[in-house]
Simulated assay, not measured.
Amino acid sequence: MNKVYLLIGGNMGDMAASLAIAKKEITKRVGRINLSSSIYKTAAWGLENQPDFLNQVLAVDSDLQAQEILKIILDIECRMGRIREMKNGPRLIDIDILLFNEDIIDEENLKIPHSFLHRRNFTLAPLAEIVPNMVHPVLKKSIMQLLQESQDRLPVQRL
């Protein structure tokens, strides 16, 4: 059984409903959700002139491999109406693989741990809520330590 940590989020439409739909689809198609962080309201990162996001981290047990999960979550995004128009732009739903077991994956279409995991408080805060002592497999620091050392100053509010 693989332990997968996913970040779900969005900043368009009924964001709470989108998170609920994404969770239902993840449960049906990826695996059982064991832990869910609180929902966090977060300022947009990268392209800041847009509405705030709602984000949540999920810990999922899955029989699937990382590339299979990637295909499924991209399909879920597409079916939910995600259109990729601009990098870091507004979106109905976004689902990212943050961590997969303690694996390090460096493939053209998949980087695990997520390349920006340690630089974004909107990812670190909900992850630290559910697994504060988990160690980043590359940086060898706990998620809580990464959050405490983070230089990201954008607001992240637990709802």
Results as ranks from 00 to 15, higher is better:
E108G: 02
L127N: 05
M144C: 06
L110K: 00
R91T: 10
G89L: 04
A128R: 05
V57W: 00
P155S: 14
N49C: 02
A17M: 14
Y5G: 03
N133W: 05
D106T: 14
I104P: 06
L98R: 08
M12D: 01
A16S: 09
E102Y: 08
V131T: 13
P137E: 07
G9A: 08
R32A: 07
P132N: 09
N2M: 02
V138A: 13
A44S: 15
I93T: 12
K141L: 07
M86Y: 11
M144N: 12
D14E: 12
K41S: 14
A44P: 15
M15Y: 01
T27D: 01
D61S: 13
D61K: 10
L47G: 02
S115G: 11
C78V: 01
E48T: 15
I104M: 08
N101H: 05
I21M: 13
E77Y: 05
D52S: 12
V60K: 04
R120Y: 11
I26A: 03
G81E: 14
A16R: 07
P137F: 03
K141P: 02
I72V: 15
V60H: 08
I8T: 07
R84I: 07
R79S: 14
E85I: 05
P113I: 03
D94Y: 15
V30C: 09
V138Q: 15
I143T: 05
V135C: 03
S38T: 06
I95L: 11
G81F: 08
S38V: 03
R91H: 13
P137V: 03
A59G: 02
E48K: 15
T123C: 09
I33T: 13
N49M: 03
Q145T: 11
E108Q: 07
I130Y: 02
Q56P: 01
W45D: 10
I21V: 15
N133G: 12
N88P: 03
P90S: 15
A43P: 05
L92G: 10
I112C: 00
M1E: 11
L139Y: 12
S38A: 10
